[in-house]
Amino acid sequence: MGGGTVDRRTDTREAIRSVALEQFGERGYERTSLRELAERLRITKAAVYHHFATKEDILASLAGEFTAPLDELLAWGDAQRPGPDTRRELLRRYAELLAGRHGRLVRFLDSDRAGLRGMPAVLEVYRRLDSLCALLTSGGPAFAPGSPADPAAALRARLSLSALHSGSGSGPGGGAGRVSEDEVRDAALTVAWELVDR
């Protein structure tokens, strides 16, 4: 009997996180309330508070879930020899990481920057994305170790991540579902590779 209670609590916590991310993406962080989340889930506001004291706690939980695998990707990239193959593999792995909830989170963070300004959990995600851009920029064609960043290479690295963010979980494209989500993701990865291969 105790196991069922744990499962129900875990399910409620995950449901709150999923619905919150959906609402944050649709309405924006500021316009989403814990009361609305409770209503949407058909639970009491007290049940939401049992799992998360604030909206910021929910967002921190979602961001933390993303930063752990992102840290693993950064550690892998740091251990590799800089160059085109490493940049392409970093982007491939990052695209894989963006599947599902992580892609929705990053698209929301990109779209609601003003509403999220200064939030510690969000700043941690941005800091890691800056580190990923640095890895994508290092070892570029006109790059020597220790030289200052090439502004064009840095911009291409940021645009490559934006391409992956746009292509992750965005649904089928091409009107009437003629292009599958996998095809959209593959196209985004191709564009990202083209940007960093220059």
Rank of each mutant, 00 (worst) to 15 (best):
Y49S: 08
T86V: 13
D85L: 09
W76H: 05
R27I: 10
G103D: 00
E183A: 15
G118M: 08
A38F: 11
L195F: 03
H50G: 07
F66N: 00
L105F: 03
G4K: 08
G139L: 05
D112E: 14
F66A: 04
G118K: 07
P82Y: 05
G177P: 09
R9I: 13
G77K: 03
D112G: 10
G174R: 02
A157V: 05
E89Y: 03
Y49A: 03
S170I: 04
V191I: 14
T190V: 07
L161C: 02
R107L: 08
R40D: 12
R128W: 13
A134F: 11
R92S: 15
M1E: 10
D7V: 15
A176D: 07
F143I: 02
V6Q: 09
G175V: 10
G3Q: 13
C133F: 04
G83Y: 05
T54W: 03
R185V: 04
G4C: 03
I16W: 00
E96S: 12
A152P: 00
R198N: 09
L97V: 11
S33D: 10
D150N: 08
E194I: 02
L21E: 09
H50Y: 15
T32D: 03
D57R: 12
D85C: 02
A152C: 10
P141N: 02
V106R: 00
V196L: 05
E30Q: 14
T86I: 08
C133W: 00
A176H: 08
A53G: 11
E39T: 12
K55I: 10
A38Y: 05
L164H: 01
L164T: 02
D150V: 01
P120C: 12
I16L: 07
T54D: 07
L59G: 07
E36K: 05
L132F: 12
E30R: 13
G171S: 05
P82F: 11
S131Q: 14
L189Y: 01
A192P: 04
A63C: 15
A53V: 06
T137P: 01
L73G: 09
A121V: 04
T86M: 15
G171F: 11
I16Q: 01
R42C: 13
R178Y: 09
Y49C: 04
G4W: 11
D182F: 03
A99E: 14
R31N: 15
A154E: 13
S131Y: 08
S170A: 13
G4Q: 09
A142Y: 12
L136C: 06
R158Q: 12
R87C: 06
S131I: 04
D130E: 15
A192V: 00
A75I: 07
S18V: 07
P69M: 09
E39C: 11
S33Y: 02
R31Y: 08
E124A: 15
S160D: 00
L109S: 04
Y49W: 14
T190D: 06
T12S: 08
H51S: 12
A187M: 06
P84A: 15
A114F: 11
L73F: 01
F108K: 01
G173N: 03
G115V: 07
L136E: 04
E39H: 11
L34I: 10
A153K: 02
G169R: 07
S147N: 12
A38T: 04
F52M: 06
D197C: 10
I58W: 06
E65F: 08
D110N: 14
G139H: 04
S166R: 04
V19Y: 07
V6S: 03
V48G: 05
D85T: 12
E22P: 02
T54I: 10
V48F: 05
M119P: 06
T67R: 01
R17L: 14
I16P: 01
E30T: 12
